[in-house]
Design a protein around this nucleic acid. Structure first.
Length: 256
DNA sequence: CCAGACGTTGTT
DNA sequence: GTCTGG
DNA sequence: CCAGACGTTGTT
DNA sequence: GTCTGG
């Protein structure tokens, strides 16, 4: 899964944030920049809101680093694996269990990407048919591309050699709903979307059972999606370029 | 006990 | 074909 | 994810 | 830090 964040949060967040005490320029986010350009593995900054500062948007490094990471190298290695947290297992995993009770957050995005794996038959040698494979990138978003919140869990990691505190975050995943199962068909998962009416609830103190019950697929009929162009991760022309979320028509190949 | 992992998706 | 780096 | 590399000796 | 596997 691949997320990006961008500037339109400001307007959408007004409803929720009584006093918005953030400087959007400080986010250093790659607006209009699918995460796979910088790659999730570069541990980009995400826009997050926590219960501690419920009326602000801060940043956290994508890839949760638990407190027991001893070195920067170890932290990076762990963060490579903690971009997402499987919601069903989050209370069992050493990396998350200490945080999901107290350190839940909202991760602001205006959409995310998934890749659809397609196969179709084309004429091969002689009378044989051969299977071709294609991957199509899809952009998934709310109506009007309104910003929305994904459920996350965060940790503060103190780097031992210099004492710096790093805010790090994982995005929680859950089973795919119908739309997402069609798109993200190789692994039927989707990010846990926190609906607007649940934003405050998700950040409030909750019992384990309540938390677990909240982490479920978004009902069908809310998210929208369309195919978008493939992105060369090194194509800097696409940095901050809205093209990466505009509809793109893949050639019709008579799929079956 | 001690050493080593600690994670997810098909890259996010 | 498969791995790596961005 | 996608693009690009993918190898060795120390010169032939 | 805490759990698991040997």
């Amino acid at each position: 899964m691949c997320y990006f964040t961008s500037k339109p949060y400001e307007s959408a967040l007004k409803e929720f944030f009584i006093s918005v005490a953030y400087n959007i320029e400080e986010w250093q986010l790659g607006a209009y920049f699918p995460a796979n350009i910088e790659s999730g593995f570069s541990h980009k900054l995400m826009a997050v809101t926590t219960a501690e500062k419920p009326h602000t948007v801060g940043t956290a490094i994508w890839g949760l680093v638990p407190h027991w990471a001893r070195t920067s190298d170890e932290a990076k290695q762990i963060a490579d694996m903690t971009l997402n947290a499987v919601g069903e297992e989050i209370f069992n995993k050493p990396s998350y269990k200490n945080y999901v009770g107290s350190n839940r957050c909202l991760v602001w995005v205006d959409g995310f990407y998934e890749w659809q794996h397609l196969e179709y038959k084309v004429p091969g040698k002689g009378s044989r048919m051969r299977t071709e494979k294609e991957k199509r990138t899809h952009f998934i978003y709310m109506p009007g591309q309104q910003p929305f919140a994904l459920g996350g869990v965060y940790s503060l990691w103190e780097r031992p050699d210099n004492g710096h505190i790093y805010h790090t975050v994982s995005i929680i995943t859950t089973a795919a709903n119908t739309l997402m199962a069609e798109i993200h068909n190789s692994k039927q998962r989707m990010p846990f979307v926190v609906q607007r009416d649940d934003w405050e609830h998700w950040l409030s103190p909750l019992q384990r059972e309540e938390i677990q019950a909240m982490i479920r697929p978004l009902p069908d009929g809310i998210l929208q999606a369309h195919p978008v162009m493939k992105v060369n991760p090194r194509d800097l022309e696409l940095y901050n370029n809205p093209q990466v979320k505009e509809p793109y028509a893949y050639p019709d190949r008579g799929l079956f």
